[in-house]
Design a protein around this nucleic acid. Sequence first.
DNA 1: TAGGTCATTGACTTTTAGTCATAAATATGT
DNA 2: ACATATTTATGACTAAAAGTCAATGACCTA
Lengths: 201, 201
Amino acid sequence: MNKRQKSAQETKHKLITAGLELLKEKGFDAINVEDITKKAGVAKGTFYIYFKRKEDIVLDISRVPFDKIAEELQKMEGLTITEKLPHYFHRFMECVESCGINTCRQWTRDVLDPNNVPETKDGQKWKYDFEMLKGILEDAVSKGELKKDTPVELLTHIIISELYGMMTCWCMSDGKFEPLDWTDRFCKIQIDAIFKQYIRR
Amino acid sequence: MNKRQKSAQETKHKLITAGLELLKEKGFDAINVEDITKKAGVAKGTFYIYFKRKEDIVLDISRVPFDKIAEELQKMEGLTITEKLPHYFHRFMECVESCGINTCRQWTRDVLDPNNVPETKDGQKWKYDFEMLKGILEDAVSKGELKKDTPVELLTHIIISELYGMMTCWCMSDGKFEPLDWTDRFCKIQIDAIFKQYIRR
DNA sequence: TAGGTCATTGACTTTTAGTCATAAATATGT
DNA sequence: ACATATTTATGACTAAAAGTCAATGACCTA
């Protein structure tokens, strides 16, 4: 990597860091592009070199932690599906908590609308999550852990729905309850239920 | 009601109708206040007599159908909690579908942030939904249908989480799947699971 | 070292949310 | 019936912020 590429990478990183801090602090609607660039120590125009629109930075802000846990999930060996998922849910909500409520609000807003997201492969993040989870389920089917007739697509949708439901619910309540305690109790009730009838014993 | 009040009501109604049509068609970010007022046949300033901010109209657009089903739920007599809720979920998703995906997107966005909502009692809509659902559960406990040690608050949060999760998931997928079919299958799996351990047999 | 490339800049344009003085219509009191 | 108060409606205006772009200079390559 030459000096230029390195400097470009640094600039983008400065913008993401500044963006995350401000997002946590004030929420997306309360900050403007100039706030971010000032905090990052660059000019306003620079922002638009790295992000097509103001909203696009949110994706980059949240991508790192969420990608990490997706990777973790895929690497978990020797665990059953009903062991893997509560762990994933827990880690997901850890990310949610560490990104802060305002970041999650904006993230959910972006995720709600596939058209409202840049056309890069990163923009398809939730589809990636979907495919990743679907893969985990298909894997469980092929290992014989789940029955052959398991409706994989449906269950994946349900799991995605549970994840975003938890996050939305936490945001709605303005972060009033402990997300991790709650998630764990939630999982205890839900995960087994989802898979109960499809597990081969 | 005198002539003035009647005309004011009509004007507000015209704005809500125009707003709903445009919201369904294009989505919240793609329309501006002048689009709405033009379609309603009034001046731009008129909008701000009835709504403090652009976002506030979404609440009024969705309030009518959702209030109706909340009322229905409270009136259902002689049904158990595990019969009432699937019906409510189904009706909820019917509303979601009839309001259109773009309206739901914006509605979810508003609901995500309690601070981003007018200070009227209507603004507390989701809290109202929460209290209403909680009441239904408490009722089931007092009738002896659910055990005395049922964690009512937790279950209410889970139900709210399921509702918004379903809606979010549907919006994310850009309305690709049939929300009603899906909801019914979803309910079949989830509702019994949620209550299973708390039901007195 | 020359000529091309690319990251950076910040003044500028454009868009749109939200305001407010003014006017018109309606209600109320005498 | 008239005068005065109140409410609804208007649209030109202001303010704020998103997004653009021609100019600049640092860096790369041959």
